[in-house]
Each structure stands twice: as structure tokens, then as C-alpha cells.
């Protein structure tokens, strides 16, 4: 296959970036998108040109390290797929492909397609956990959890923290990310005792970190590589109302 790549090149957060165009011959349809970039980078290094910076790690769609925009879509055109699992057979011969970093106010560009997503960790630090110490846990079977609740909790817990939802959101909001974590924990009895405190702190943090709010466009759901439902966001609101109209301070 022949591919024409327009790739966003940017030295740093405060340096203006621009598109560079690369022509690739002999692209194998069996390559993943990242393998195509690997091969291009090998060529660039041999030519003495700075290779394109992008991040990836597991390359099997679970670690959440990779991710950028392909033709305006987070992780590219294929549903439920990260870029590392997106193969070139889904593009046509001679196609021009535009590659841009994930953009959002909370995700400053570090280099080319590498962005800083540490704001997601900062949200998690505010309450994306159950405060139980090692050593104090009761027997695992002492609290029954319905099969349904466990399965739904899993659906939300499957978030890989890649940031595609933020990148796809017209508002750069992390609502799906936050909602998924809150939903995962609220569905389990173990997550109950801290739920009000959790939602308050996480929501406040999300805004303080520069993420926008949710306007329910559901672009996040459409681009989430784990296909997490916007039910997570409805649940996030529900948790918020619950915390808002309650006196108890946890």
C-alpha cells in the first residue's frame, strides 16, 4: 500500500506546531498503525531526521499508553480499538491520513504526538479508590455481590485511562473517565462508605485541572476504545445529587 501521512510535529508545549508530510511506499496491510510509524521512524533515523515522537507500550490495547487523532478521530476510525490495534488494512491504498495529538486544555503537548495526561491521575488521587488497608480485609466471600453488579462494575472498571474521551469531547471533559471510576466503585458494596466524599472531591478536581464540563454529546462514548457507556456519566450525576442533597459529611 501507499500512504501519505500528515503528522503534527511540535517541539514542546509552548512552541507552535505544524504538519509535516511523509510519503510511505510498501506499507503492509498487516502492520498496525504504530508499526507503520515504527518503520517510518527507522527510515527517518537513517536519514538523520528527528523521528516522530509517540507513545505506546503494551501494543495489545490494554495499557492505555498509546493514542492520538487519526483523521480527526481518537484512536482512528475503528470502533472499540486503540491505535496499537488498528491495522493498515482498514485504510485504502493511496490514502492521505492526518495524525494529530490528543488535544485538550488539560493535556499539554510534550512532543509531537506525546501529550501529558497526568491530570487523569490527579483526578484519581482525589478519590478513585477504596480506603482499606492491607491486613484489614475480611474474607473475600463474606460480602456477597450480585453477579450483575460485579459484571456492571467490571464494565466500568475496564477503562484504560488513555484519554480518548477527553480528546474526543468538544469540551475536553473527563466526565466519562471520572464517571466510569465512580460507577465502578458505587456498584460494589465496598465502595459505599466513601461515595459522597469521592464524588465531591473528584468533580472539584476535574474542574480545577482545566477539564471542561459535560454537554452530553456522547462523543466520548463513540470513541472510547473500551466502549464504556455514557451511563457512567448519568451515574456520576446521580452520585453528585446524592452527595449534594445530603447532610452527612464523610
Amino acid at each position: 500500500m501507499r500512504i501519505r501521512l500528515r503528522v503534527w510535529r511540535q517541539r514542546g508545549p509552548d512552541v507552535p506546531g505544524k504538519f509535516e508530510v511523509y510519503e510511505l511506499e510498501d506499507v503492509s496491510p498487516d502492520w498496525s498503525f504504530l508499526e507503520m510509524l515504527d518503520v517510518l521512524n527507522l527510515r527517518l533515523v537513517r536519514e538523520g531526521k528527528e523521528p516522530i515522537a509517540f507513545e505506546s507500550d503494551c501494543r495489545e490495547g490494554i495499557c492505555g499508553t498509546c493514542g492520538f487523532m487519526i483523521n480527526g478521530r481518537a484512536h482512528g476510525p475503528l470502533k472499540g480499538t486503540t491505535v496499537c490495534q488498528l491495522h493498515m488494512r482498514h485504510f485504502s491504498d493511496g490514502e492521505t491520513i492526518t495524525v494529530e495529538p490528543f488535544r485538550a486544555r488539560a493535556f499539554p503537548v510534550i512532543r509531537d504526538l506525546v501529550v501529558d495526561r497526568s491530570a487523569l491521575d490527579a483526578i484519581m488521587q482525589e478519590g478513585g479508590y477504596i480506603s482499606t488497608n492491607v491486613g484489614s480485609a475480611p474474607d473475600a466471600n463474606s460480602i456477597p455481590v450480585s453477579r450483575w453488579a460485579a459484571s456492571r462494575a467490571f464494565d466500568f472498571a475496564t477503562c484504560i485511562g488513555c484519554g480518548a474521551c477527553v480528546a474526543a469531547c468538544p469540551n475536553g471533559s473527563a466526565s466519562l473517565f471520572l464517571g466510569a471510576k465512580v460507577s465502578h466503585l458505587m456498584l460494589l458494596p465496598q465502595g459505599g462508605p466513601e461515595r459522597k466524599r469521592r464524588i465531591r472531591k473528584m468533580l472539584i478536581a476535574m474542574e480545577a485541572l482545566g477539564f471542561g464540563g459535560c454537554s452530553n454529546t456522547y462523543a466520548c462514548e463513540a470513541e472510547c476504545p473500551k466502549e464504556i457507556s455514557v451511563e457512567a456519566i448519568a451515574r456520576m450525576y446521580r452520585e453528585a445529587w446524592r452527595a449534594m442533597f445530603s447532610h452527612s459529611e464523610e
Binding site: Y129, A157, L188
Partner: peptide, 19 residues
């Protein structure tokens, strides 16, 4: 297993609610 369940790891469960 006890600890992971306590911190919210959603292990697969039977209909009766146990692991």
C-alpha cells in the same frame, strides 16, 4: 484475594453473589 475484593476488584461471581 481478600484484599483485592476489599479494594473493589470486580472478580467474576456466581449468581449467589460469591466468587
Amino acid at each position: 484475594i481478600d484484599y483485592c475484593v476489599a479494594i473493589g476488584v470486580p472478580f467474576a461471581r456466581e449468581y449467589g453473589g460469591l466468587l
